[in-house]
């Protein structure tokens, strides 16, 4: 999933609930149809929050999610495509 070419990257590292979802929505609104948004968070709750948000949002498709360790901290990456 990391091979997805993201049109935009949103960095919400260090921010906690509800900010990752709220800011994802804001960045998602600025996407063109077909584009993918990459969201990088450190909030572990963002895994279920962003998945749930994408499921409930008509024109959002969760392309992938992954966990990684970068610079000694756990990061959670989300890829959301705007379908229309």
């Amino acid at each position: 999933m990391s091979t997805e070419t993201a049109a935009e990257t949103l960095d919400v590292k260090g921010q906690n609930c509800p900010m990752p979802v709220v800011k994802t929505r804001g960045a998602f609104d600025d996407l063109a149809a077909g584009e993918v948004l990459e969201v990088i968070a450190t909030d572990s709750g963002s895994m279920s929050d962003i998945a749930g948000w994408a499921e409930s949002t008509d024109n959002a498709e969760l392309v992938g999610q992954e966990e990684a360790t970068e610079g000694g901290e756990d990061v959670y990456k989300h890829y959301v495509r705007k379908t229309e």
Partner: peptide, 11 residues
């Protein structure tokens, strides 16, 4: 406030 901003993100 958390619920309000989250619900707004859900449209």
């Amino acid at each position: 406030l958390i619920l309000a901003s989250t619900a707004a993100a859900f449209g």
